[in-house]
């Protein structure tokens, strides 16, 4: 069992949903990344999603695009990413998920990249441009290394497709809350709640369902958890905090924000 699967089992026995927190590695600096990780862990987040920047992030809105560009401009390389993950692993046993784009893996071959990621302590992968039709080699390589493959579904994903995606997914299923890219939204749509219920029905208890994209407040967290989400994923809101906070205050600011969100998952 992977760290992610174990975590969901523990939470289930406590009747709690998971809080999954995203940050962009190397934004605005390595030091800030490590400070944010400490704040997230102290604040009680259950899973940390580490973004590795890609030059062309088509699924991301302005906030994460900005963080990607900044991180790349600072010179963040994949070797730096792996060395940061190693540092985090020395301090914590929390599940770590990598979110990036297909080309970053494809470039080194899926197998090589995934076994290296697993070795340094990554537990699962999210690739927003990896469609189920193209995923055979990727899933095969991940299975071989015991890496979870977290696929995304959308409110417009039809049921037959949903079934195929669920079959290829491990760890948890990532439901995109909105038609759009990542970033803060101002309201929760009825179609999202309907889609969440439908997705949960298809998942049928076999795989946890997390909701992400546009979730930024404790109220959002409460709404999704009370509608049946097994996890909520918060990303751009963390980046926004980091954008406006000096490095020596990042840990405490992220801690306070995370604690507030985590309270609503119980």
């Amino acid at each position: 069992m992977t760290r992610i699967q174990e975590k969901f089992n523990q939470l289930k026995s406590k009747n709690e949903a998971a809080l999954i927190s995203y940050i962009m590695v190397g934004y605005p600096s390595e030091k800030a990344t490590l400070a944010a990780v400490r704040g997230l862990i102290k604040g009680g987040t259950d899973i940390i999603e580490l973004g590795f920047p890609f030059s062309d992030p088509i699924a991301d809105g302005p906030t994460i695009q900005m963080a990607s560009t900044e991180s790349l401009n600072k010179g963040t390389k994949i070797d730096d990413f792996f060395s940061i993950v190693k540092k985090i692993r020395k301090e914590a046993d929390i599940p770590l998920v990598l979110m990036t784009y297909t080309n970053i893996l494809y470039n080194q071959t899926y197998q090589k990249f995934i076994s290296r990621a697993k070795e340094v302590g990554i537990d699962g992968l999210i690739l927003p441009d990896m469609a189920i039709e193209e995923s055979k080699d990727y899933v095969k390589a991940a299975k071989k290394s015991g890496m979870d493959t977290i696929f995304l579904v959308s409110p417009n994903t039809q049921n037959d497709r949903l079934k195929k995606i669920i079959k290829a997914t491990s760890g948890f299923l990532y439901m995109v809350a909105v038609f759009g890219t990542t970033g803060v939204q101002t309201k929760i749509h009825k179609y999202t709640i309907d889609a969440l219920k439908n997705t949960k029905r298809s998942a049928n208890g076999k795989i946890p369902v997390g909701v992400g994209f546009g979730i930024s407040t404790d109220k959002d967290v409460h709404k999704y958890v009370s509608s049946g989400a097994d996890a909520v994923i918060v990303g751009s809101a963390n980046i926004k905090i980091m954008e406006n906070t000096p490095v020596n205050k990042i840990e405490s600011k992220i801690f306070t924000f995370t604690k507030k969100l985590k309270n609503k998952t119980r």
Partner: peptide
């Protein structure tokens, strides 16, 4: 192939 975000699949 079609390496696309799921929202575009339909």
């Amino acid at each position: 192939g079609k390496y696309i975000p799921e929202t575009l699949a339909p």
